[in-house]
């Protein structure tokens, strides 16, 4: 049995009430295995982002529970959640990942700096920082500000930032959504390597089958429920499953 990095237990998330009630999550239970690259896929509005936000301690479910490592999130106060996010979790968002006033280097080191490790805009674990920076290939961009970098470079900085504090799990919400295919491939390749070489755990939300094919495991969501799952998929397999799900959805509506 593999170690579990994060666990969702019967998660429900409802927005609104009465007629306008939306069940964004409708009973999701999921184990995220450590040192695995997991993709969450599903049609738009199926609850992918909501699930990720709940798992990543950014949002609280209406009912159900989330565990990160052996910490149960329900009942934690904002302060504890903040510390947890800072120390255990890394993030890569679809857009707006970087603080515009800071250089690439400072953005990468931001979580350490926020943790109050003084002078760590320089110090930190020097070796690890160098490894991460070299892996994302940003050595010569470190002094640039976000406005001086391309979208792909910005996302790689975001990835480096997510890894530098050695979090137990990294969440990425459509990290390649705004990128062209070459830049996207670079970012995905890097995420893959950090799982293989650094034993990182990554959960990625995507609707791109190509992106999902970099993963060890793909979980399919529809209408707030887990409907399917495949392991070590390739692009064709993923497309097949997606088509099947769509057909089922159309049948369901009819």
């Amino acid at each position: 049995m593999q170690a579990v990095a994060a666990r969702a237990i019967d998660l429900h998330k409802r927005y609104g009430a009465g007629d306008s009630e939306v069940r964004a999550l409708d009973g999701v239970s999921l184990d995220i295995a450590a040192r695995e690259f997991t993709a969450i896929m599903g049609p738009s509005g199926s609850g992918k982002s909501t699930l990720m936000h709940c798992l990543a301690a950014l949002d609280t479910p209406t009912s159900g529970d989330v565990q990160i490592g052996d910490v149960t999130l329900s009942g934690l106060r904002d302060k504890a959640l903040t510390t947890l996010r800072r120390e255990q979790i890394g993030f890569v968002f679809q857009a707006f990942n970087l603080v515009p006033t800071l250089t690439a280097r400072e953005n990468i080191l931001l979580p350490l700096y926020l943790a109050g490790r003084r002078g760590s805009f320089g110090g930190a674990d020097r070796e690890w920082f160098d490894t991460v920076v070299d892996t994302v290939g940003l050595r010569d961009r470190l002094t640039h500000r976000p406005s001086q970098m391309s979208g792909g470079q910005q996302q790689r900085v975001a990835c480096a930032r997510a890894l530098v504090s050695k979090p137990s799990i990294v969440f990425a919400d459509e990290p390649t959504g705004n990128l062209d295919s070459t830049s996207g491939a670079e970012v995905l390749g890097f995420l893959r390597r950090s799982v293989d070489e650094f034993d990182q755990t990554i959960v990625m939300v995507t609707h791109d089958p190509v992106a999902a094919s970099y993963c060890d495991r793909v979980v399919f969501l529809a209408d707030g429920r887990i409907v399917d799952e495949i392991r070590t998929p390739d692009r064709e397999q993923i497309l097949e499953h997606m088509t099947a799900l769509q057909a089922a959805a159309v049948r369901g509506q009819a």
Binding site: K79, T82, R86, F91, F96, V99, P100
Partner: peptide, 15 residues
């Protein structure tokens, strides 16, 4: 959004 990002990567309310 920037403040949200800072909060997400671990900046406390006090900070």
């Amino acid at each position: 959004r920037e403040i949200g990002l800072l909060r997400a990567v671990g900046m406390s309310r006090a900070k």
